[in-house]
């Protein structure tokens, strides 16, 4: 089955970010979204550890380790950068001031529940800012492979892993499709032209609602 690369999923998610939006990208895969901002439609990125409007990664050897993102990678300052402490940073998050948060997922349920912080009781639990980010941003989107490495659906009827937040996700960009969560259902908006609705349903863990128009998911080679 044809599928989008992580870069292509990130590109697709970036196209929906309105110019001038305040955006938080989760650590890891979601950080890629920043590099695909359409020219002239740049967003302002927030990182939980206290920077608004940070820039790209510095060259190796030019890192300032007091200028890092939530993943503790070095970033840069640019005209309009602001620094602030953690209580202000999470006031931006919970207070409804961010326009979009884009996060990764282990599982998303059809009612919008998200599981993305714990794979179960083994190992060392770590939550970071994930549980805060799912509340407060006006739009919480997920980018993810459509299925797990073992081929199991990540879009499910109900999450089996520990929840990050209840009913919080509104849109999912996967390696196969773009799906909205509306009224507690998965509504298919776009799919790869090479995949049938039946094939997509077979790798989705809950029923897909198919509206009259489903657009083709067209993404450049990246």
């Amino acid at each position: 089955m044809e599928k989008l690369s992580n870069n292509q999923i990130a590109w697709r998610a970036a196209q929906d970010i309105v110019a001038g939006s305040y955006v938080n990208l989760g650590i890891g895969f979601p950080e890629k979204v920043a590099q695909y901002q359409p020219k002239g439609h740049e967003a302002i990125f927030h990182t939980e550890n206290g920077i608004l409007n940070f820039g790209e990664s510095p060259k190796p050897g030019e890192e300032d380790w007091d200028v890092i993102n939530a993943g503790k990678k070095a970033v840069t300052i640019r005209p309009g950068t602001a620094f602030f402490h953690h209580a202000d940073s999470f006031a931006m998050v919970r207070g409804g001031h961010l326009d979009v948060a884009i996060l990764g997922a282990y599982e998303v349920a059809e009612n919008g529940d998200l599981a993305n912080w714990s794979t179960g009781p083994r190992g060392v639990p770590a939550v970071g800012g994930a549980m805060d980010l799912v509340h407060g941003a006006k739009r919480v989107a997920v980018i993810t492979d459509h299925v797990t490495k073992d081929g199991k659906p990540k879009l499910v009827k109900a999450c089996t892993l520990p929840l990050t937040g209840v009913g919080c996700v509104t849109r999912i960009y996967t390696s196969l499709a773009v799906i909205d969560i509306e009224g507690g259902r998965f509504v298919l908006r776009e799919k790869l032209p090479s995949i049938s609705v039946e094939d997509l349903q077979a790798v989705t863990g809950a029923e897909l609602v198919i509206p009259e128009t489903v657009a083709d998911l067209i993404v450049p080679e990246l």
Binding site: A87, F90, V93, R94, G129, M131
Partner: peptide, 15 residues
């Protein structure tokens, strides 16, 4: 022993 606290809650509890 570990007490795990969401990051924003940790900040606000301290504040």
């Amino acid at each position: 022993e570990l007490e795990l606290v969401p990051q924003g809650t940790l900040a606000e509890r301290i504040r």
